[in-house]
Nucleic acid binder design. Structure first.
Lengths: 177, 177
DNA sequence: GATAATTGTTATGGACCATATCAAATATCG
DNA sequence: CGATATTTGATATGGTCCATAACAATTATC
């Protein structure tokens, strides 16, 4: 049902499980050289969803190549801009990022002077997150790139109305499934 | 824009980049204790797409808990059933799985006696893939579980017509974006 | 004021994804 | 035919992403 998933837990070499092998050698059904039939796979929501998501991220990265922003980084900048003065835990959790994994991410953004951690005066445990001036400028350019190169292509492909319907259905799945 | 992405490349400690720090301490905008505003994030296709995909996979795994099948494994079984007699390279590539990563995956399925590798008589380099009897039985049960517990919930949530429209749009994105 | 909880952080392991490389078998071409 | 190139399955390996445990500093709770 998925795409690009590979390594498995039980990597046991198929040692003994070689029984239904002899009889099968007789009636070998050689697959034709034509393209494979996807069959029911193309009706599986998860499969199509994953493939679409990979394509969208791929395109996003191409559009953002000049700014070197990943989807995850873009989402952080957007959220910090919209919610200045929040701490790491709050930003991370609303993005579904675990706090330990958020540290390296912020180290990166901060080292590029896109956002800054500020010790809170209220609670000296927490770091308040804000965008730097450069961060604001980069985010502005990023939004333009996304709008003109990325989301616009969706409109071409689906049409404005369909694009909105798609977003609404995906939101519904994300929130209520 | 994304969800649950974390580790970054340049994990440089933000050593020097501590300049816009002093002035910021004065006008600390303390975030309220209320929920954060998603803002433009909820309009970003990639963000919503990723969250929806995670939810769908999560639900899929719950529905398949009794059969211990991941989305990726289910897709392999479906494709092998629909295209018996194909080799590893063909199955893997149409699923977007790289051949090296497909090996452990097949080791797993074969060790559970769900599918089998058979040396092709035409080309003794390649392994032909077929479902075992157990594999066919498990796949039949898996399809029923997916239909009754997984896809059915989509119909409840979106309605039949919308569900089909969603699938069509996602396919379009996956194939033409 | 002792104990518990929270915040940012580090360390670490697992799962996923990609590349290089290899031996065996086959294809290609002189 | 025979030398070379290509293909197939496999191994090794590294990178990225995701999850958990544990820690020091700080704050909350009792």
């Amino acid at each position: 049902m998925t795409v690009s998933k590979t390594a498995e837990k039980s990597s046991e070499k198929p040692s003994d499980a070689a029984k239904g092998r002899k009889d099968a050698a007789e009636g070998q059904v050689q697959g034709s050289t034509e393209a494979l039939q996807l069959g029911e796979l193309s009706e599986q929501l998860g499969y199509v969803l994953k493939r679409a998501q990979l394509k969208v991220f791929e395109n996003f990265l191409r559009c953002m190549a000049s700014l070197q922003l990943t989807p995850a980084q873009f989402s952080v900048l957007l959220l910090v801009e919209k919610n200045p003065g929040r701490n790491q835990t709050e930003i991370a959790s609303t993005l579904g990022i675990l706090r330990p994994n958020f540290v390296a991410m912020l180290d990166n953004l901060e080292s590029r002077d896109l956002c800054a951690r500020i010790r809170s005066t209220n609670d000296r445990r927490s770091h308040i997150l804000v965008l730097t001036d450069k961060g604001k400028a980069v985010l502005t350019r990023a939004k333009k790139l996304v709008a003109t190169k990325h989301e616009s292509r969706l409109n071409e492909l689906l049409g404005q109305a369909n694009r909105e319907a798609l977003l609404e259905m995906l939101s519904k799945i994300a929130n209520e499934f």
